Amino acid sequence: MSVTTLPLPLPLLKQRELQEHFGVSDWTVNSWIRRQGCPVEYLPNGHRRFDLDKVRAWMAEQSEAGREQRRRQSENALTQRPA
């Protein structure tokens, strides 16, 4: 009989650890959460923790959305130019 072990989930990061990982300030992380929807886990005591995989996926999604927005702006600018 073989035993299969599943990898344990990585521990959640504290905000300071997330800041250090991405090299950003606390203001930036707070902005990500409040204004842009960064995924965050709230502990029963009210402290916030971050799943690095979820944050990375969110950042990739934000990057793609930003590229799409810039593409649309560029197209609009080209179509609105006087002839």
Rank of each mutant, 00 (worst) to 15 (best):
L43G: 01
T4S: 13
P82N: 00
G66D: 10
K54C: 05
R67A: 14
P9T: 03
E61T: 09
P11Y: 10
M59D: 02
Q80C: 05
A83R: 07
Q36L: 15
A60T: 01
W27K: 15
A65T: 05
D51A: 12
K14R: 08
V3N: 13
P11T: 00
E61L: 07
E64L: 03
P44N: 06
S74G: 14
L43S: 10
L13A: 08
M1T: 13
P7C: 15
T4L: 13
A77L: 12
S31W: 04
Q36G: 03
L43D: 10
R16E: 14
R16M: 03
R71G: 01
Y42G: 03
A57Y: 02
E17R: 00
M59P: 01
E17L: 09
P7R: 15
Q62H: 11
Q80K: 09
A60L: 10
L6D: 12
W32P: 03
N76Y: 04
N45A: 12
R56Y: 11
A65Y: 01
E17D: 06
N76R: 03
W27Q: 13
E61K: 07
G46C: 09
R49E: 05
I33A: 08
R35K: 10
R81C: 05
E61R: 07
K14F: 01
Q15H: 03
W27T: 15
E75A: 15
P39M: 04
E17M: 07
H21I: 00
E64M: 07
Y42H: 07
D53L: 06
H47D: 15
R72C: 11
A65H: 06
N45L: 00
R72F: 10
R71M: 08
L78C: 07
V40M: 04
S31P: 01
A77H: 02
M1A: 14
G23N: 10
Q15D: 00
P82M: 03
F22R: 03
I33F: 07
K14L: 05
E41C: 08
Q69R: 14
T5E: 14
P11A: 09
S31M: 12
A60S: 11
D51W: 08
L13Q: 12
F22N: 00
M1H: 01
R34G: 00
A77C: 02
S25K: 06
V29Y: 02
L6H: 09
W27H: 12
F50H: 02
V29K: 04
W27E: 13
W27C: 12
W32T: 13
Q80M: 02
R71P: 09
V24Q: 07
Q80E: 03
H47G: 08
S25P: 00
Q19T: 11
V24A: 04
Q15I: 01
W58A: 09
S2G: 06
G23A: 13
S74K: 06
S74V: 02
G46D: 11
W27I: 15
L12C: 05
R67I: 14
R70Q: 00
W32K: 02
S25I: 09
R70W: 07
E17N: 06
Q73F: 00
K54Q: 08
D51N: 06
L6K: 11
S74M: 13
R49I: 10
L18N: 06
T28W: 08
S74A: 13
P39V: 05
E17Y: 01
F50S: 10
R35N: 15
S74H: 13
D26G: 09
R35C: 11
E68F: 01
M1K: 11
Q36M: 14
H21A: 06
Q80I: 00
